[in-house]
Design a protein around this nucleic acid. Structure first.
Lengths: 342, 342
DNA sequence: AACAATTTTGCAAACGTTTGCAAAAAAACT
DNA sequence: AGTTTTTTTGCAAACGTTTGCAAAATTGTT
């Protein structure tokens, strides 16, 4: 096979630009990568030449040589849910303002060997990492030792050594529950999230507090364990509804769970909100699309993404920044899925 | 400021592994990167050493030196919709099987200067590109000249020089329309997609053909131009419903548009499906969640993603592969949003 | 046992940047 | 005009790989 594929598809390099503009390649590098001292006239000359030649930096080389890759990574379970989608939008928008690119790593695949995995990332070409995953643990330490920038999204770090951005989970849950109580409900069920995630716990606590504060005894039977996904919430709701004394309202720990609950309730032959009220958490785009429109606690998801990016960039530019935790406010969005107690 | 940040956070390199296992670094490279001739015993020794040291390749260096980066890029408008999410899932799953990573580029930002942009990508560190974008044009040629691997998803290439994977748009639209006709509808409106996208045109044609084949005159008034997004579909549906002789059924060119149409119809005080039937296209996850559940034409979105990846890999491993076009079958999914003519 | 053929290994030269250090040029003082 | 200071530039040495080529080791032939 005479496969004379010319492997070398020569690209325009910094050297070409240097030649074209009559300066040394290091000057070009300086012009292109930063703001070092370089005479304005020279800078212009270089910029023009680069433009003319259609130069574009080779990221691999740059990161090898020690510069920033201008890539940040985001570690997520998967792309296929509105929650992540909204956060991703915020991330993306903020990133674009500073000309960074985005690398996506999904965990659902790399089961188990996450540590190795995280090391791979840190070692590689990303300048920092955004983690939107449950069960973060071991590798945080590795990151800390390496001073590798990262921020946790919607997931607390028990050791308080991480930068994290989240929202007022406890309070949001409290408000949701309170709202239900004010509608006259006394038996309020909750479908929890995956309890390994800190926000799931916080929401459960908020629910409990609201109950207590309004003199309603907490009944463990009304707590159904879910995992933030629709199918398990569906099952959980089914369990709740088959109680001898079923709830007249359900607080689902996220919207996806609320959708599952709606399905289950409807299948039990009951109407929403006439027979049972359902409230969610997150306010993903679909929440306003389902019927009846879902009343829910809004997390400013895109904002969360934005803030996370800013915090990460801060660390990148300024290593050794002391850990910060930013908590964004949630607010109740009343739509059509809740009504007064029947 | 005594910021003595030790810039050099030394990583384990191929050289360390070489030392540890008592061979030269090139042998290590060969063991790690490919299947070159190397004695089995040596290979084992190297592998063990690498394992022990926790070695992990530096992608930047590898791609600089001419190897594969094992990263593929995907160019999308944005991450915040179920359609992309599903395709992405397919892509991701398939990629994980071959240990590739994923870089996401969104276009909504780089308005206009897409050519420069695409060149940047191709020049950079991705081994290939998946394009899920409207309005592909100029840069395709650049890719072709450079023999840079790419595949078009759900978007045809008029010149037939690209690898593309899509689904049976014409046929899906035909079936949807036919289904509506068989339910007795005579005045069937259509909300088109963004007409710059080939699939939008194909779906419109399918709709027309079905009409013609069943002796229903095509009425231009019943065609409302949309752009595949909910808000414009909402408006389009409103227009349709305010016709002197409004349609009794609407074929929306994608599910998002169908959601918009549902909203509009409901707001006009009409019921779905009793007063007007609505059918969508795509079958995104939410389609089964809205109420009434949406009858729609299912595209195997994750499959599309999978196939696209396979085609891309094929090109990467085997440059100069002649362009192929794979068209996956759609099928009608009947749910609750369509009924016989009132 | 000598030689040829084949398989396995190692050396060195890229790949395209960044950056410390020193040289050159320009500007600011005497 | 001669110094000193400051700004601007260039050289060279990394960074961690891959890979062509040649040397070394192994195997096969006679």
């Amino acid at each position: 096979m005479d496969a004379n594929t010319s492997r070398k598809n020569r690209h325009v390099t910094i050297v070409d630009v240097a030649r074209e503009s009559g300066v040394s390649y290091s000057t070009v590098s300086r012009v292109l990568s930063g703001f070092e001292f370089v005479k304005d006239e020279t800078r212009q000359r270089v910029l023009n030449a680069a433009q003319r030649l259609g130069y574009v930096v080779n990221i691999g080389a740059r990161s090898l040589a020690g510069g920033k890759s201008k890539i940040i990574g985001v570690l997520v379970p998967g792309l296929d849910n509105g929650y992540i989608g909204e956060i991703a939008r915020g991330i993306d928008e903020e990133l674009s303002r500073v000309n960074y690119d985005l690398m996506v790593y999904t965990t659902h695949r790399h089961q188990g060997k996450e540590l190795t995995y995280a090391r791979a990332i840190a070692n590689g070409l990303t300048d920092g990492l955004l983690l939107i995953v449950p069960l973060v643990r071991d590798y945080l330490q590795a990151f800390q030792e390496q001073q590798f920038p990262y921020v946790l999204i919607d997931q607390g770090d028990p050791t308080n050594r991480s930068h994290v951005v989240d929202s007022t989970n406890w309070q949001g849950a409290y408000e949701a529950t309170k709202y239900l109580i004010e509608l006259g409900h006394q038996r309020i069920g909750i479908i929890t999230g995956l309890m390994e995630i800190t926000s799931a716990g916080e929401r459960l606590e908020g629910y409990k507090s609201a109950l207590t504060d309004h003199n309603i005894a907490f009944d463990p039977d009304l707590v159904a364990i879910g995992d933030f996904w629709q199918p398990s919430a569906y099952q959980a709701a089914l369990d709740l509804m088959s109680l001898k004394n079923p709830p007249t309202a359900i607080f689902a720990s996220n919207d996806l769970s609320a959708f599952g609950a709606m399905e289950a309730v409807r299948e039990s032959g009951l109407r929403i909100p006439e027979d049972v009220s359902i409230i969610g958490f997150d306010d993903v785009p679909q929440a306003a699309l389902v019927h009846p429109k879902l009343t829910t606690v809004r997390q400013p998801l895109d904002q969360i993404g934005r803030v996370a990016v800013r915090m990460l960039l801060e660390q990148i530019d300024n290593p050794g920044h002391p850990p910060r935790r930013v908590t964004l406010a949630t607010r109740l969005v009343v739509r059509d899925s809740c009504a007064s107690r029947p």
